[in-house]
Computed example of a mutant assay.
Amino acid sequence: MTIKSRQMSAPDMTRTFNEWMRRYIEEPEKYTREFQRVRDFLADEAAGREPSYGESCTAYQFEIFDEMNATPIAD
């Protein structure tokens, strides 16, 4: 997975992490694959590879960021 270079402000990161947690709380079943990600992370490290977890999380955070910016915020 290759991620293009992007930047996000600290307040935007805060908002997206809060949204990430909100989604996890509302639909925990969508996040049950985390245990597989833990196994993948450990396998990558054991094989001397850089784990792809951080890259996946970054992509997901920007996905949330883009979704939030596409939806008008109610006053």
Rank of each mutant, 00 (worst) to 15 (best):
Pro28Cys: 02
Ala59Tyr: 06
Met68Cys: 02
Glu50Tyr: 01
Gln61Ile: 11
Lys30Trp: 03
Phe35Trp: 15
Pro51Glu: 04
Pro11Asn: 08
Asp40Tyr: 00
Thr16Arg: 00
Met21Ser: 14
Phe65Gln: 08
Arg15Cys: 01
Phe35Ser: 12
Lys4Cys: 12
Arg49Leu: 10
Met13Leu: 13
Tyr24Thr: 07
Pro28Tyr: 00
Glu63Gly: 08
Glu19Gln: 03
Pro72Ala: 09
Arg22Leu: 02
Gly48Glu: 06
Ser5His: 15
Glu26Ala: 07
Met1Tyr: 11
Thr71Tyr: 01
Phe41Cys: 14
Glu29Ala: 10
Trp20Leu: 02
Asn18Gln: 15
Glu55Pro: 01
Thr2Ile: 15
Met1Arg: 13
Arg39Val: 15
Asp40Lys: 04
Arg22Thr: 03
Glu50Pro: 01
Glu29Val: 07
Phe65Glu: 11
Glu67Pro: 00
Glu19Met: 02
Asp44Thr: 06
Tyr24Glu: 04
Ala43Phe: 04
Asp12Asn: 13
Phe35Thr: 11
Thr2Glu: 14
Gly54Leu: 09
Arg37Leu: 03
Thr14Ala: 05
Met68Ala: 03
Met1Ser: 12
Gly48Thr: 07
Glu29Asp: 14
Val38Phe: 08
Pro72Ser: 13
Met8His: 08
Ala43Trp: 01
Asn69Leu: 04
Ile25Ser: 10
Thr32Phe: 11
Arg33His: 12
Pro28His: 00
Ile64Glu: 03
Lys4Gln: 13
Lys4Leu: 10
Arg33Leu: 08
Met21Leu: 13
Gln36Ala: 14
Ala47Arg: 06
Lys30Gln: 09
Asn69Ala: 06
Met68Asp: 00
Gln7His: 06
Tyr31Glu: 10
Thr32Ile: 11
Pro28Gln: 00
Tyr24Val: 07
Phe17Glu: 05
Ala43Gln: 07
Trp20Met: 00
Arg39Ile: 12
Asn18Lys: 11
Asp40Leu: 04
Met8Trp: 06
Thr58Glu: 10
Tyr60Phe: 12
Phe17Val: 10
Pro72Gln: 12
Thr71Arg: 14
Tyr53Met: 09
Arg33Met: 12
Thr32Gly: 12
Phe62Trp: 03
Ser5Phe: 13
Met8Phe: 04
Phe65His: 14
Phe17Pro: 02
Phe17Trp: 07
Asn18Ile: 12
Phe65Ile: 05
Glu34Asn: 15
Phe62Tyr: 07
Pro28Ser: 00
Gln36Trp: 09
Met1Leu: 13
Ala46Gly: 12
Pro51Thr: 08
Arg6Trp: 06
Ile64Phe: 00
Thr2His: 14
Gln36Val: 11
Gln36Phe: 08
Ala10Asp: 14
Ala74Arg: 09
Asp12Cys: 05
Ile3Lys: 15
Tyr60His: 12
Asp40Glu: 08
Thr32Lys: 15
Arg23Ala: 00
Phe62Leu: 01
Phe62Pro: 00
Glu63Tyr: 14
Glu50Thr: 08
Arg39Trp: 09
Phe41Gly: 03
Thr32Met: 08
Ala47Ile: 03
Ile25Trp: 10
Met13Phe: 08
Glu50Cys: 02
Gly48Cys: 05
Met13Asp: 01
Ala59Met: 10
Ala43Glu: 06
Thr58Ile: 15
Trp20Arg: 02
Tyr60Thr: 10
Ala47Tyr: 03
